[in-house]
Design a protein around this nucleic acid. Sequence first.
DNA 1: CGAAAGTACCATACGGCGTATGGTGGTGTC
DNA 2: GACACCACCATACGCCGTATGGTACTTTCG
Lengths: 207, 207
Amino acid sequence: MALADADGIESLSMRKLAAALDITAMSLYYHLKDKEDLLDGMLDIVHSEFATPSAGDEWRAAMRKRAGSTRSVLAQHPWAISMKARTSPGPATLGHLDSVIGCLTAAGFSMAMTGHAMSILDSYVLGFAQQEASLPLDPSGDIGDATEAIMAQQEAMADSFKNLAAMAVSLILQPGYALGNEFDFGLELILDGLEVALLSDSVSLSQ
Amino acid sequence: MALADADGIESLSMRKLAAALDITAMSLYYHLKDKEDLLDGMLDIVHSEFATPSAGDEWRAAMRKRAGSTRSVLAQHPWAISMKARTSPGPATLGHLDSVIGCLTAAGFSMAMTGHAMSILDSYVLGFAQQEASLPLDPSGDIGDATEAIMAQQEAMADSFKNLAAMAVSLILQPGYALGNEFDFGLELILDGLEVALLSDSVSLSQ
DNA sequence: CGAAAGTACCATACGGCGTATGGTGGTGTC
DNA sequence: GACACCACCATACGCCGTATGGTACTTTCG
């Protein structure tokens, strides 16, 4: 994982991993079935780093914490993002999901509504992490260094893509703009929506 | 793209692509700088398949159409999902974004709110597509074939992951459950939230 | 006309990859 | 003292992306 964080997942080879461990490539195959097996294990470790709700947590706070930690963990291990859509989950992955379901049902969510909530939250956070990872931002989230590169394309865009150009100058290039702010907006919007859905859900159940 | 759709992106090599075109691998390098160049081009074509809002479209309908078409296009080209987070957008990508910005600002969204709306919608749809692609579902979205495999793990899970097991039997394995239904729930929740935000946005602007 | 320039393709080769096959020496057990 | 097991390794095969340096054929132009 240190190698993948430093040089990118595509440059992690069995030979390089072995060299970092002072053994040869083939020795790895005593411990691992194949490279897939290695990646599955790495992904499960990533899942173990996500904040997991404890029994009794208030659901909104728990989901906020989970979303935030997921985002920051995935920012630290960007290679995990595209792998998250991987079949064959490990124990950490399953345990994490289990706690989330427990938290939501304890808060009064029906099983169907729990499924809805997890689907929308997970999709949002995963998608956001992926978009965030694709931007040439420094870790602060500030647009910083990229500004000049964008300004260079600015003239070419002004003709063909007027709206895009307008957004660039009046929003994205403004000092203080950071994609991180967008994350909270969307997350709160979703949590608000879920709260409403939760209310009508429990009403319909109690009738 | 046909090759990537059929056999997966990881099995698309310059040699195989060349063979499919009845030329040799090195001949491709007359037309392409390198393999990255090829992938960038493929991704831009995918972007051109997304439904793009026309001037004057009602924003909710336009965003619904865009989200739905994005989802189905990405389901058809699953390899594009992990590539979507790719720097160096092509003309189709930029043109698409431009139209979306135009649609939202025309509907009364401020530039900041347009940014919020695009961020949350794009994150949600992209994340959902990624999760959808990772599930072993048949194209209908029905759980179908996977049921037996899940049932086999069922006993092992019942002990360690009680909530997960409960969700499996009472929700996911129920006949008629399909992940596709989750998509619409989340999308409408987000659109509702944006509508509320749009109203308070224009109120605060008119004051 | 003939030469130069440009276009589309190709043969060969290099270093890297995942991993199949078949070892090797050290340790613990009965 | 025989045997099994553990952790590691040497060699080799068939892939991969692509650097280098061609080759025919067509178009352009003095």
